[in-house]
Design a protein around this nucleic acid. Structure first.
Lengths: 97, 97
DNA sequence: AATTTAATTAGCAAAATGGCTAATTATCCA
DNA sequence: TGGATAATTAGCCATTTTGCTAATTAAATT
């Protein structure tokens, strides 16, 4: 792996763990994953917090790479990047084995 | 699993993910694990931040259960609870598979 | 074109986090 | 006992995070 790639890896781990650090975001992530993709309104309606707050959590998850977003007309469909999450969590689990 | 146990599980996951959310704490955790236990001074000396700051990170890790501490005279020996970390990370990895 | 709907962005206040230095506790040793 | 060492706790400040409401953008519908 190149040095640059290594740095990007570390930065992604930073973003992923920071994103997972908030319970609402973990809940959103699970919810999106088990529904197999859903739009922001679906998600916002299910949660206690306001839609804009949810929207920001979604943006944090997208920045971390844990969610992907597909613009479809005026709604945006979010899907979970399960591969990325599994890879990072498993890498860290392996460090400790 | 009893309801109470389920709640405790969730709260522990909260604490663990919150603890992992800070890069310094992840670094400390790795460092302690690979050294097979070390005292606060060893850890503090290796890091950029001051000893009290390290001390607080250690306390956060202990509260989460990811570190255990054993008082030996005036030094405190920290060891990583690799089992807990593996269990939680693997459980979450499995949710997404 | 006007209105409704989906969602984000802007802007602000409250709370939590993280860093520091100084002070304190607790143990060891001479 | 008195001093040195290991570490935490206290107290403070700056920054970041999170939550809200109001405003805005963009697409669909009538």
């Amino acid at each position: 792996m190149s040095d640059l790639a290594a740095i990007e890896d570390i930065e992604q781990a930073d973003a992923v763990f920071a994103a997972l650090g908030h319970p609402a975001r973990r809940q959103i992530l699970l919810s999106v994953y088990f529904r197999g993709g859903c739009n922001a309104g679906d998600i916002a309606r299910r949660f206690d917090c306001s839609w804009p707050t949810t929207s920001r959590h979604l943006a944090t998850l997208v920045k971390s790479g844990l969610l992907e977003v597909d613009k479809r007309g005026r709604s945006r469909v979010y899907t979970a990047n399960a591969t990325l999450l599994r890879e990072i969590l498993q890498r860290w689990a392996n460090y400790f084995s």
